[in-house]
């Protein structure tokens, strides 16, 4: 087994009477693409929130590249190289797509930003344009993001999360709100871009076909606990997973 990039040991988080995470111990190797599945409220987003420093776990440790990062802030986790995208895209709504990227590239990583250097410089503009091309959103460059269709918003959200070249990226439901026909297009583009950057990927997904197609490994959550962890085939065919997560459904006639 290769050395783990991210490792969690016995993570736990409780909100009032709700146990959102309990004894979550997982390990992700560098270069892996891991799919995370589970019903709503199974603790997937809580897991992302804890790993990225948005929430501090009540119990357990988080190790990144062997270093304990439990309890670090979002800024520190980002600096360490763990980025994320969001279920509801987190953009700068009053600005255009290009301006969103310009701002993201220009301010990235400035804990105390310098004041004497203008942000809009040729290298920043170039990088912003390059990212737009990479994620196929250059056509919408001049559109204010609050007027964008959901698919472009999701792509921009991921593009912004990738600014700064993270070692690991967590995608929280990258295809939610996107029509079934477009899902594979979007996900294909994203996975290509992420593979070429060499980032390790952990993505939360409800569509089992997407998970089966893109994940190297799948982790299933149920009521805050890890229900199953293994290859897509093992996990998706695990009876407990079928019972509680995937559900029994007739095969979709449109599936190619």
């Amino acid at each position: 087994m290769p050395e783990a990039l991210l490792e969690t040991r016995g993570l736990g988080k409780t909100f009032g009477a709700v146990v959102a995470a309990e004894d979550v111990s997982v390990s992700v190797a560098a270069g892996e693409i891991v799919g995370v599945i589970g019903a709503n409220g199974a603790g997937k987003t809580t897991f992302c929130n804890m790993v990225t420093g948005y929430l501090t776990p009540d119990r357990g440790r988080i190790l990144f590249r062997g270093t304990d990062i439990t309890g670090c802030t979002v800024g520190e986790a980002t600096a360490a190289g763990i980025h994320r995208s969001f279920q509801i895209p987190q953009l700068f709504p009053g600005l255009t797509v290009y301006e969103n990227l310009l701002l993201s590239v220009g301010v990235f990583g400035h804990r105390r930003p310098p004041w004497w250097k203008p942000l809009v410089r040729p290298e920043i503009q170039q990088e912003a344009r390059r990212v737009m091309e990479q994620y196929h959103i250059a056509d919408s460059a001049e559109t204010r993001v609050d007027r964008l269709p959901q698919g472009v918003r999701k792509l921009l959200d991921i593009a912004m999360a990738m600014v700064g070249g993270p070692a690991m990226i967590l995608l929280d439901e990258p295809t939610s709100g996107i029509s079934t026909e477009e899902k594979f297009d979007v996900m294909g583009n994203v996975i290509d871009a992420l593979r070429s950057s060499g980032a390790t990927v952990l993505f939360v997904e409800h569509d089992m076909d997407v998970v089966g197609r893109y994940a190297d490994r799948v982790i299933a959550f149920r009521e805050g606990r890890v229900l199953a962890d293994g290859t897509p085939r093992e996990v998706l065919e695990n009876p407990a997973v079928i019972e509680h997560v995937v559900g029994r459904r007739p095969p979709r006639p449109t599936d190619a």
Partner: peptide, 16 residues
Amino acid sequence: QGVRENELRLRYLGVS
């Protein structure tokens, strides 16, 4: 502008 438009995103860009 980041604080005004979306503070959460700004934090995830590593800016305090």
